[in-house]
């Protein structure tokens, strides 16, 4: 199906059922991810610009920004995270149900950006695990799409067996928490 997943012949007997389920499960998840609406600062306008007519984010199934984190699976952190706002970001992240992904958009979310000051958190990965980093100040909508496609590739490479709710072999959450813990 995909060139990047070469399935050896001898494993096909063992895995054929799981890979079909995997494929459908991942296909369903990646093409209708719903981002939680979390535009904090300037990058929010490029994110909204990415969802309008010229750069259409609806072709990735994401035009539906959900205000409530309980309905969303992707958090696009667009903008500067200040120390006053950081606990709220963490709270929203913890309210999102698994499986969830985080995309840090823009230099400020990645590492504080040009604001090396007393009031800015120097990077979102101090408080939550980030999957994809999209640099730029602000990144163009095309760059954001590149990041989204990387998330899709990540989702495709996951297996049903690795999630916590599937059977006895499931591990706990597939990656650790933030960088410090």
């Amino acid at each position: 199906m995909f060139e990047d997943e070469k399935i050896p012949v001898e494993e096909i007997d063992r895995k054929i059922l799981v890979t079909s389920v995997d494929w459908i499960y991942n296909w369903g998840r990646q093409y209708s991810m719903w981002p939680v609406m979390f535009g904090l600062a300037c990058c929010a306008f490029e994110m909204i610009g990415a969802s309008t007519a010229r750069y259409d984010i609806a072709r990735f199934g994401m035009e539906f920004y959900r205000p409530s984190p309980r309905h969303a699976d992707l958090m696009i952190l667009a903008g500067t995270i200040t120390h006053k706002m950081a606990p709220q970001v963490k709270r929203i992240w913890e309210q999102m149900p698994e499986p969830k992904y985080c995309l840090a958009m823009g230099s400020c979310a990645i590492s504080g950006g040009i604001f090396k000051s007393y009031a800015v958190l120097q990077g979102a990965d101090e408080i939550l695990p980030v999957d994809v980093y999209v640099p730029g100040c602000p990144p163009r909508p095309e760059a954001l799409f590149d990041g989204i496609l990387k998330i899709h590739r990540m989702v495709r490479a996951q297996s049903v067996k690795g999630v916590s709710w599937y059977g006895k072999e499931g591990s706990s959450s597939r990656r650790g928490a933030s960088r410090d813990e």
Partner: peptide, 17 residues
């Protein structure tokens, strides 16, 4: 009070604050 001249403009981590 940050804007005073004797306040040093350094970055804090989340845990410090």
């Amino acid at each position: 009070h940050p804007l005073r001249k004797d306040f040093e403009n350094r970055t804090y981590t989340f845990k410090e604050l």
